[in-house]
């Protein structure tokens, strides 16, 4: 064996070895959760764990999805679907004109405004939740779906504006100038020219807003009490109080599944948005 071959062999062993370690460390927790959700309680509780399942059952999933189960997961998923979808739509509706204005019109202090908006992500969430709580109680909105939608929109809107702005900034301004000369109003330009061109941006904003609303936990924990409007994350959490381990794992898998699927389907779009945004 030549020196070169020996070196390549060493490199390969090192690379495949570390790839295996990384794969196991990152994926094992998720595999373990899935495994637990598919096994009978007696096997989970026994101490001879095996990492290759011998029996697979779907009872835990059927059980947690049964209406009236102690964990309001079915209602939670429906509520979260409603809240997340409407939050996402609301954010897109509000963020689009804002982003367009910040990108195209010379708003005095526009850069500062954007900075302030983005700083929302660096401040502790509780800083915003305390006054929101006071306001919602005052308006009688506490313990309603509206309080969740308003709070989520407050958190997600800056992010949506930022996504739209990165997309609009990349459009050549000449098209819009030509349209203006032809007599288009700002609204017409937005509707007829900008909107069709930034479709991927709208999709990205929707996916992000949906995921962020779906996983939010602290906000519903504070703002809602009724089981009726419990979101999926909150409902799933109730499973930690006292139910079987297998059902708890099944509830966790169901909470995770929609966002994981969105993430896998839109992986390319999501990474692209995050990385281009980070370049500036």
């Amino acid at each position: 064996m030549t020196r070169r071959q020996r070196r390549d062999l060493a490199r390969n062993i090192f690379i495949y070895g570390s790839a295996l370690v990384v794969l196991v460390l990152m994926a094992f927790p998720l595999y373990g959760l899935l495994l637990t959700s598919l096994q009978p309680e007696s096997i989970i509780r026994s101490r001879d764990v095996s990492f290759v399942p011998t029996t697979i059952i779907f009872d835990h999933f059927a059980e947690v999805l049964r209406p009236g189960h102690i964990v309001p997961l079915r209602e939670g998923m429906i509520n979260s679907l409603i809240v997340s979808t409407s939050t996402a739509l609301l954010c897109i509706l509000l963020a689009l004109p804002a982003a367009y204005a910040l990108s195209r019109l010379k708003v005095p202090g526009g850069g500062l405004l954007l900075g302030v908006l983005i700083s929302v992500y660096f401040l502790p969430t509780t800083l915003f939740l305390i006054p929101m709580f006071v306001i919602f109680v005052e308006w009688g909105l506490d313990d309603t779906i509206w309080s969740l939608m308003l709070a989520y929109s407050g958190f997600i809107l800056p992010f949506a504006i930022w996504i739209f702005k990165t997309f609009i900034d990349q459009l050549p301004i000449e098209i819009e100038e030509a349209a203006r000369i032809d007599g288009c109003s700002y609204l017409q330009i937005l509707h007829l020219i900008v909107l069709p061109l930034i479709r991927p941006g709208i999709l990205a904003a929707f996916v992000f807003a949906f995921i962020l609303s779906w996983i939010e936990f602290l906000t519903p924990l504070i703002f809602t009490n009724s089981l009726r409007i419990s979101t999926v994350a909150l409902g799933m959490f109730r499973s930690t109080i006292d139910i079987q381990i297998g059902q708890q794992a099944a509830a966790a898998v169901l909470t995770l599944l929609p966002v994981a699927l969105l993430m896998i389907v839109f992986q390319r779009l999501i990474t692209q948005v995050v990385l281009t945004g980070a370049d500036r």
Binding site: M26, I215, F237, A260, L262
Partner: peptide, 15 residues
């Protein structure tokens, strides 16, 4: 490697 990103924090806690 990317997958844990999609895990809601509350699920990560339970997990």
């Amino acid at each position: 490697v990317v997958l844990p990103w999609a895990v809601p924090p509350v699920v990560a806690g339970v997990l």
